[in-house]
C-alpha cells in the first residue's frame, strides 16, 4: 500500500466511510504492518482530540439580530414587490417589447421589399400572360385553318383557354361554326362562343349562323342556345328555316317550340 492510498484508507476508516470489507482489509493490513498501525493510532488520537473541540453557545443576541435582519428583508421584499408590480410589468415585457419592435421593423422592411417585388412580379406575370395570349391567338387561327378536323378541334379548345378573346378569334370561331365541314368542330365552336355571349358580335354571329346550318344537331343546339339567351333577333331566321321543306320534322318541332319560348 503506497503512502497516498494509506492516507485515503485511513481517513475512510476514521470517518466510518469505509465498507465492511474495506475495513477488514485495512485492519488486517495494519496488523501486518506495525509501523502503519502506529501511524494510524496517532492519527486516531488526533482525530479524537479534534472531536473534543467545542464551541460556546451563540448568544441570544445573535438570534435577535438575525430575526431583525430577516424581518427587514421580508418587509423590503414586499415593498419592492408592490412597487414593482406596475414597473415589473414593464420590466417583464421590456425585452419582449424591444424584440417585438425590432421584429416589427424587420417585418415591415421585409414586407415592403416583398410587396414591391410582388408588384413587379405581378406586372411581369401580366406581361407574360399577355404574351402567352397573343401566341395562343395565333395558334388558334393557325389551328382553325388546318385540314385535319382534330387540329381544328384543338384550335377551338385553345380558344376556350383564352380569358378575353379579340375580334379576330371570334370571327375565326364564327367562320368555323358556319362553314366547317365537320359537325363536331362546329359544335365545339358554338360551345366555345357561348363563353362570350355578352359580346354583341358573338350574339349577332350566332343569330346569323342559324340559316347557314344544315345539320339537325347544329340547328337544335342553336335553337336551345337562343332560348337560353332569349334572343328575339333569332325568331326571324328560325321562321325562315322552317320554310325549308327538307327540314327534319323533329327539328321543325323543336324550332317551333323554341320560337314560342322566346316570344
Amino acid at each position: 500500500m503506497d503512502k497516498e492510498l494509506f492516507e485515503i484508507k485511513a481517513m475512510e476508516h476514521l470517518t466510518g466511510a469505509a465498507s465492511a470489507a474495506d475495513t477488514a482489509l485495512f485492519e488486517s493490513f495494519l496488523d501486518k504492518n506495525p509501523e502503519y498501525k502506529e501511524k494510524f493510532s496517532e492519527l486516531k488520537r488526533s482525530w479524537t482530540l479534534l472531536g473534543q473541540l467545542d464551541a460556546p453557545q451563540p448568544s441570544a443576541q445573535m438570534d435577535d439580530s438575525f430575526f431583525t435582519m430577516l424581518s427587514n428583508a421580508i418587509q423590503k421584499n414586499k415593498k419592492e414587490e408592490s412597487k414593482n408590480m406596475f414597473a415589473g410589468l414593464f420590466g417583464w415585457f421590456k425585452p419582449q417589447f424591444a424584440f417585438g419592435a425590432l421584429f416589427l421593423m424587420v417585418g415591415l422592411g421585409v414586407g415592403y421589399f416583398l410587396a414591391s417585388n410582388e408588384e413587379k412580379s405581378s406586372n411581369q406575370v401580366v406581361a407574360r400572360d399577355k404574351e402567352t395570349e397573343a401566341v395562343r391567338q395565333k395558334l388558334i387561327l393557325t389551328l382553325l385553318e388546318q385540314p385535319s378536323a382534330n387540329q381544328r378541334l384543338q384550335g377551338v379548345g385553345e380558344a376556350n383557354k383564352i380569358v378575353a378573346v379579340d375580334e379576330i378569334v371570334i370571327k375565326a370561331l364564327l367562320k368555323t361554326l358556319n362553314y366547317d365541314a365537320n359537325v363536331n368542330v362546329s359544335l365545339a365552336a358554338v360551345e366555345s362562343l357561348t363563353n362570350y355571349v355578352e359580346n354583341p358580335l358573338v350574339r349577332q354571329g350566332l343569330v346569323q349562323a342559324i340559316q347557314n346550318q344544315e345539320s339537325p344537331i347544329m340547328q337544335i343546339t342553336l335553337a336551345n342556345l337562343m332560348v337560353a339567351l332569349q334572343e328575339k333577333a333569332s325568331i326571324e331566321p328560325f321562321k325562315q328555316l322552317l320554310e325549308n321543306q327538307e327540314l327534319d320534322t323533329t327539328v321543325k318541332k323543336k324550332i317551333k317550340n323554341s320560337i314560342e319560348s322566346i316570344i
Binding site: 492516507e7 485515503i8 485511513a10 481517513m11
Partner: peptide, 19 residues
C-alpha cells in the same frame, strides 16, 4: 474526493505535530 481525504489526513498529521 480522494484529494480531499489526502489533504485532511496531512492536515491532521500537521496538527498533531503542532499540538
Amino acid at each position: 474526493e480522494g484529494a480531499a481525504k489526502v489533504r485532511v489526513h496531512r492536515a491532521l498529521k500537521e496538527l498533531r505535530i503542532i499540538f
